[in-house]
């Protein structure tokens, strides 16, 4: 049995301990906002918050989240995610959309730690999130815009 919290709810699941968190979220909890893109921590589409920091759920066995708090795109709250989502909408960042949950999780984590990121900060924080549609120009724009909103 693995006990953990997802989006504020307690779970106690009897599951193969090797099962990646990604597939527990999707197949068992039906939280499908977290996406599968590579399975090997190369693309970032599966990014969730684990105890408040970003984590690639495709390489996180469920046994490793015992006692932890997981937050997915569906459960995100706070000024940073609000500003990021608003900027993403305002600038129409997504194209196909598959990577965007992961992009938004990484961008939110960046802004939580660096309120006014430089282009280099953005390059470094977002380096692990592939956008195959190459919406990178707008991702960068939207992070700067969200930072501005947060400055107030």
């Amino acid at each position: 049995m693995t006990k953990f919290q997802v989006n504020g709810r307690d779970y106690d699941l009897d599951i193969d301990p090797d099962t990646p968190l990604l597939w527990v979220l999707r197949d068992e909890l039906r939280l499908t906002g977290t996406k599968f893109g590579c399975g090997v921590a190369q693309c970032g589409a599966c990014t969730v918050m684990l105890d408040g920091v970003p984590r690639r759920s495709c390489v996180t066995p469920i046994s490793a989240v015992e006692g932890s708090e997981v937050t997915t795109i569906e459960g995100m709250e706070g000024p940073e995610i609000t500003a990021v989502q608003a900027a993403w909408n305002e600038i129409d960042v997504p194209q196909c959309g598959w990577c965007q949950s992961g992009q938004i999780m990484s961008a939110t984590a960046l802004l939580q730690q660096v309120p006014s990121p430089t282009d280099d900060d953005i390059n470094n924080a977002m380096a692990g999130n592939i956008c195959r549609c190459a919406t990178y120009v707008r991702i960068r724009q939207a992070i700067h815009a969200a930072a501005k909103t947060l400055e107030g």
Partner: peptide, 14 residues
């Protein structure tokens, strides 16, 4: 690593 993408964003304890 960088804020937003630390070593433990991908690497775990095993």
């Amino acid at each position: 690593g960088a804020p937003g993408m630390n070593c433990n964003t991908c690497h775990g304890t095993t």
